[in-house]
């Protein structure tokens, strides 16, 4: 089943209540043709379980990896992805757009 924002934020709360470390990723800016609109959410726990999306699957892997550090040190950061990235082949957006993603701990 597809997850709506309702499910995602409710699940984040349930994960925290179960004692899991949780990070929340939010698309805060897009340029060009980006797959998910500004405000889209992805939640990640310390085991790497996740729900939701910030792109069509292009950069989720990188966001999930960064989320582990955010849960660990409790500091929010802003990540930027796009075809202009030198890592484009690894975590770029095939659609040619660029996005900025805020990753913050839920603490």
């Amino acid at each position: 089943m597809l997850s709506t924002d309702t499910d995602i934020l409710a699940t984040a709360e349930a994960w925290r209540d179960a004692g899991r470390g949780v990070a929340l990723a939010t698309v805060i800016e897009t340029w060009g043709s980006a797959p998910r609109p500004v405000g889209s959410h992805l939640i990640i726990d310390q085991e790497g379980n996740f729900l939701g999306s910030v792109s069509g699957g292009c950069v989720e892997g990188a966001v999930i990896a960064e989320a582990a550090d955010v849960i660990e040190d409790g500091k929010p950061r802003v990540l930027e992805f796009g075809v202009a990235d030198e890592t484009a082949w690894r975590v770029g957006l095939s659609c040619g757009g660029r996005i900025r993603v805020l990753v913050e701990p839920v603490a």
Partner: peptide
């Protein structure tokens, strides 16, 4: 995000 803010948003 503080947990109490998340709870408030869900409520």
């Amino acid at each position: 995000m503080k947990l109490d803010i998340l709870r408030e948003m869900n409520r």
